[in-house]
């Protein structure tokens, strides 16, 4: 494997966004890119990352390999990279280590690190293709604000989507709160728009602690997409350039 990223910031942000949710992960490398799928310890949330080969230049992967990496270790090494450094990942066939180099674009500084790999026996889940009943695309900062504000009151949030819009509601010991958003097109800045596409109304309840965790990815993208259908896990997607993405799935809470 040899994969060169123009900006180390991308990988730094991705790892930062998922390291509190999952710890030891296989980075599955093949000629289409680098993928990661991992569940959190409680088996309630799942991270699915895809960095397409087009996000790297150049990208070469002659044989499929799984790089088992501890994200705490990776974080320590990535801290040594500046955001605008050029980052290159390298691994041999049947590797013991993954090699990372960081090149400063404006000086002759080159740093190089090896991280020991681990054997990770990871459960791989088949995620069915789902036609979601409701898809909401909104500014990622808005979604972060909603989850943060409501998590101060309650452990859970009910998300209801109807043709009127989407409503986030919570009930806690001190009282209750809600935030409603309507479909809205911002003509000056499309990134601030709220798009709602609905085939049937949905109402689901989720644990806020996971949603707050997902929002650590907000720095990766101006927009976030929420996909919901009744009684299936929520999909929260942060799109990256070149069709790469960081997705989170969260199992709902269901009434007794």
């Amino acid at each position: 494997l040899e994969a060169r990223l123009e900006q180390a910031a991308m990988l730094k942000r991705v790892v930062d966004a998922i390291k509190d949710l999952v710890q030891d992960c296989n980075f599955d490398c093949n000629d289409s890119g680098i993928a990661l799928q991992a569940m959190d310890n409680s088996h309630v949330a799942l991270v699915s990352m895809m960095l397409k080969s087009e996000s790297f230049s150049p990208f070469r992967c002659d044989r499929n390999i799984a790089l088992g990496i501890n994200l705490t270790s990776l974080t320590k090494v990535l801290r040594a990279a500046q955001g605008d450094d050029i980052l290159t990942l390298k691994a041999e066939d049947a590797p013991d280590v993954v090699n990372l180099t960081f090149e400063s674009p404006e000086s002759d500084r080159l740093s190089e690190y090896d991280i020991k790999l681990m054997d990770i026996d990871q459960e791989h889940l088949g995620i069915p293709d789902t036609e979601y009943a409701a898809t909401i695309t909104l500014p990622s900062s808005e979604f972060s604000r909603i989850t943060r504000d409501l998590s101060a009151l309650s452990e859970s949030v009910a998300i209801e989507c109807t043709k009127e819009g989407v409503k986030f509601t919570c009930t806690g010991d001190i009282g209750n709160g809600s935030v409603s958003l309507r479909q809205h097109t911002n003509v000056e800045n499309d990134a601030k728009s709220v798009d709602i596409s609905l085939t049937e109304p949905v109402a689901l309840t989720f644990s806020l602690k996971y949603l707050v965790n997902f929002c650590k990815a907000a720095g990766l993208s101006d927009r976030v997409r929420l996909c919901l259908s009744n009684e299936v896990p929520l999909l929260v997607e942060y799109g990256l350039s070149n069709n790469s993405y960081l997705r989170f799935y969260l199992a709902p809470k269901i009434g007794d």
Binding site: V44, E123, L125, A251, K253, D256
Partner: peptide, 14 residues
């Protein structure tokens, strides 16, 4: 009250 469902109730083990 509601209880938290696990993902394995929805996604298959590959």
């Amino acid at each position: 009250t509601s209880h938290q469902v696990k993902l394995l109730a929805f996604f298959n083990d590959k």
